[in-house]
């Protein structure tokens, strides 16, 4: 053939899997429970949607076992929007993840928001072509997930509360430890690996690069444009918004406002502008009053 041709075609490589996470940087990923909400999210400028049966605040209220969504609902959403569609599997539930991969979802979230299926093991994510995102409350947890094959980390926060305090705690913990590791000498890195219960190789990589080997986004408690600006300034590379949009008084303008605030997160005047007249945010919950802390799920 001609002087242009190609060779060595490969799917599901780590570069291809984390590549989509790279493309989502600077954007907003929104939880949606049906095609109609997915459309509102896409119209508002979401870079992706997370399809799930109930948003975290409803899961929290209803209790019981929270599972992967009905494939019909996921397919409905895939047909409705052109942006990537993610979906959640239970921690350790590799069969749910296999189903989601067969449906062609673009990212699987092995999520503490659903009821864990395995109390010792997370999914072996290297075994999949579909990329995974996992939550983390600290650097050790993040590195264990990456060593299992996660291509994107999101700080967990406390989903369904509309309270940003846990997201801030987790972001500061992860990024603070990364900063400390870059100051450590070679001998101290062995101690860091032990303390974090994380692979030495990943700790050494962080010492060299000063960042996680995959993009880090923020989730759990974002309810306002100001919340989005706060976590982006703290070092998150994109945000997940769960109950914060569709449990607020007027979802469409709030979704749009959070997109604007995430894009212009350093520009206070732009964030102020986005914050005007949005109506009531979702009702918030005090962390100390919670019966179940979702962030504690994961090992």
């Amino acid at each position: 053939m001609s002087d242009t041709q190609s060779d060595n075609y490969e799917i599901g490589t780590f570069r291809v899997k984390r590549g989509l996470a790279d493309m989502l940087r600077g954007g907003v990923i929104m939880d949606v429970v049906n095609a109609e909400e997915a459309k509102i999210a896409e119209d508002a400028g979401a870079t992706a949607v997370m399809a799930l049966e109930r948003v975290p605040s409803d899961i929290r209220r209803d209790g019981g076992v929270a599972r992967m969504s009905d494939p019909v609902m996921i397919e409905d959403i895939q047909k409705t929007v052109t942006i990537p569609v993610m979906a959640k599997a239970r921690i350790g539930h590799f069969a749910e993840a296999q189903i989601l991969q067969s449906l062609g979802v673009d990212y699987v979230d092995e999520s503490e928001v659903l009821t864990p299926a395995d109390e010792a093991h997370h999914i072996d994510k290297w075994a999949f072509t579909v990329p995974f995102v996992c939550g983390a409350t600290n650097l050790g947890e993040a590195l264990r997930r990456i060593s299992e094959g996660a291509c994107m980390i999101r700080s967990k926060g406390e989903a369904g509360t509309g309270n940003i305090v846990e997201a801030v705690r987790h972001l500061r913990s992860i990024l603070g430890d990364i900063r400390k590791i870059t100051q450590a000498d070679a001998a101290e890195l062995f101690q860091w690996a032990k303390t974090l219960q994380a692979p030495l190789g990943l700790v050494q990589e962080i010492a060299e690069t000063g960042k996680l080997p995959v993009p880090m986004f923020c989730a759990g408690g974002i309810a306002t444009p100001a919340d989005a600006s706060l976590v982006m300034q703290l070092g998150a590379e994109a945000v997940f918004v769960g109950s914060g949009i569709f449990k607020s008084e007027d979802p469409a303008p709030r979704a749009r406002a959070i997109v604007e605030a995430t894009t212009h997160f350093r520009d206070a005047a732009a964030v102020a502008n986005a914050s005007r007249g949005l109506g009531e945010a979702m009702p918030g919950l005090e962390i100390s009053a919670l019966e179940v802390k979702l962030a504690e799920r994961g090992w």
Partner: peptide
């Protein structure tokens, strides 16, 4: 979709 994303 993403599962068909590739390098070459």
């Amino acid at each position: 979709r993403q599962i068909a994303s590739f390098e070459s």
